[in-house]
């Protein structure tokens, strides 16, 4: 036996602390992962980030000097809305090639701006620490994601607009596409909201209802976006439910004839 190397005296082993499970990708806060902290340097990176690493966008919007990123988000949202608008305009052709893109991009931005103050107030009431500028950036991110997804739907929308003659059908299809895209956009906003130390989602859920109603009413206020038009703005004011009912009634009458 080696006398110079005696057996060390036993010492109490410290208790092993319970190991917390690794955070799941959905519960992870923006900035927790190193890839979230990589700067977003251009519009293409912004598109890539919002599709694959939405937390990276959320984190970067919280950093000082996020104005450039907000500008990219807004620019891409407008550009994608214009492109989708041209696809919408292919149904009626003529003036709608430029009127539909202007109405869609303009209507979308105006709807967002109308709803921005209420989102900020609801966020503050829920205990969120987000600044107004950050919320503006997040809303732009939501619009960008929504319009990018609309671009994904554009080939399908174009095919239908070339083969059908029904304005109602095309209008419904565009609304369905917008609704699906908006779900993903709102999901992005919801994730950001839940990571802004908000204690409750009730205010945000109320805001979603308000935003959806505003957008739907905007489509009626700026009608016609799909069908042929003589004037840029409609000649009479209507609530969207009454407009839709009128459209359905006209369509049913035409079908019965």
């Amino acid at each position: 036996m080696n006398e110079t190397n005696p057996t060390p005296p036993p010492f109490p082993t410290p208790p092993i602390p319970p190991v917390a499970p690794p955070p799941s990708p959905t519960s992870r806060a923006p900035g927790d992962a190193p890839e979230d902290r990589a700067p977003i340097t251009g519009p293409i990176t912004a598109i890539e980030a919002i599709l694959r690493q939405p937390r990276r966008v959320m984190y970067q919007l919280r950093q000082p000097g996020s104005g450039a990123l907000m500008f990219y988000l807004m620019l891409i949202a407008i550009l994608c809305a214009v492109i989708y608008g041209v696809v919408v305009g292919t149904f009626a052709g003529k003036e709608q090639y430029w009127i539909a893109p202007v109405k869609i991009a303009g209507g979308m931005m105006v709807s967002a701006l109308i709803c921005l103050p209420s989102l900020y107030i609801f966020a503050c009431l829920s205990g969120s620490q987000a600044r107004l500028a950050e919320i503006f950036g997040l809303v732009m991110g939501m619009l960008m994601l929504t319009t990018i997804l609309l671009i994904g739907f554009a080939p399908v929308a174009w095919l239908f607009s070339q083969s059908t003659e029904s304005v109602n059908w095309m209008g419904t299809l565009h609304l369905v596409f917008w609704f699906i895209a908006a779900i993903f956009g709102l999901r992005f906003l919801n994730t950001a909201f839940s990571h802004s130390q908000a204690k409750s989602n009730a205010g945000f859920n109320t805001w979603i209802v308000i935003f959806m109603l505003v957008v739907v009413q905007m489509t009626t206020a700026l009608r016609p976006i799909v069908g042929p038009t003589d004037t840029f703005f409609p000649k009479e004011k209507k609530f969207f439910l009454s407009y839709w009912t009128d459209c359905l009634r006209e369509s049913a009458e035409r079908g019965n004839r």
């Binding site: 599709l51 694959r52 990018i148 997804l149 671009i151 994904g152 739907f153 554009a154 080939p155 399908v156 095919l159």
Partner: peptide, 11 residues
Amino acid sequence: GNGLLNGMLAP
């Protein structure tokens, strides 16, 4: 026709 949409939906 759906390539772009499918590629966006996956991530």
